[in-house]
Design a protein around this nucleic acid. Structure first.
Lengths: 179, 179
DNA sequence: ACGGTCATGTAACTCGTTACATGATTTC
DNA sequence: GAAATCATGTAACGAGTTACATGACCGT
């Protein structure tokens, strides 16, 4: 069994929706899972190519009126099987999430208090913006009546983002008081 | 001005403490900042080499009784300056933290409910273990009377970990009820 | 003629992990 | 003499971003 990375599985999963071309996949990611899984064109196109080479997807070139040609990808039975296997597999060990703020704060003793305060306030502002982004995507999913059963799970992922971001903002407040 | 990555700054920062050799730096990381910044030997040694080459640190070989020789690194004025500059620099854009759980949950519609429940319970268990690790490190710092003023900032970083992890655990509970 | 969007793709580069190689010394 | 710890290092590999190249079509 060949090994694939999670980004490949993400693309495999997206191909089960109505996204069929590299360009569409990129758009879908930017609108829906950008908050926990970014993928660039530099990864998408080579990955799609590999999916076809290894029999997980078939290509169908389509010409459109008024737009350039596209390559549409369709999952094969093997492709679906491999996606299903991944979904069933238990989670890997949780990765360490690197955090520039914590790294700088860790050396707070070598800084002035003003610097540390600025650092935390800067961070809090950035968190607030992210929180608003989450709310925006959430509203988009709720109104834009996509497939209702898909939407349920998408909203779960946004709730996760909102909750952990809110916790981080509260931490900023508490820490600012305790410096 | 040459550019350095955050891992290099982390090592620069650690060299301001009493850690002087690659081996000691690795131990320090594993005990203190492993929860938000992991670094392997494969990065430490080449980075230290580069620090010396570019005049940010000096090397001093020392022989110890009963132990192999070590190379001790000391920050130069230039090294300290570059660390200070980084500490003052505003934060970069917050990176997207990839999350395998959210990625799988996102495709929850293609899974059975039992599978999704298992996924979330598995995640919650892993979060609990991490939370306990944080508490362990915290207790270690509190008791082990290191430099008290350093400890303050170290505890802040642990508080961050505990709060965001707690929020994630609560999310698991809520989501499990709403599936 | 220009900018925007649609569309596909690659090459160079950075970052990081893993596995390996080496070897001293200490303890059981 | 074997295992554990101390100590330094490199080579191969994988993952991912960025910048670039190319080109069609649309509206103004």
């Amino acid at each position: 069994m060949k090994k694939y990375n999670d980004t490949t599985y993400a693309i495999l999963g997206i191909l089960t929706t109505d996204c069929r071309s590299g360009y569409e996949i990129k758009q879908f990611i930017d609108n829906s899972l950008n908050h926990f899984w970014k993928i660039s064109y530099g990864q998408i196109y080579p990955t799609l190519k590999r999916l076809e080479e290894e029999g997980l997807a078939t290509i169908q070139a389509t010409s459109q009126e008024g737009k350039p040609d596209r390559k549409e990808y369709f999952l094969t039975a093997k492709g679906k099987e491999i996606l299903k296997d991944w979904l069933e597999k238990p989670l890997k060990q949780l990765p360490v999430e690197r955090n520039e703020v914590l790294l700088k704060l860790f050396f707070g003793n070598h800084q002035t208090e003003e610097q540390t305060i600025r650092l935390l306030e800067d961070y809090k502002q950035k968190l607030e913006k992210i929180y608003q982004t989450y709310e925006g995507i959430e509203a988009g999913i709720a109104s834009h009546n996509n497939n209702q059963s898909d939407a349920k799970y998408w909203l779960f992922t946004l709730d996760y983002g909102k909750r952990t971001t809110a916790a981080a903002m509260e931490w900023c407040d508490t820490t600012l008081k305790e410096i």
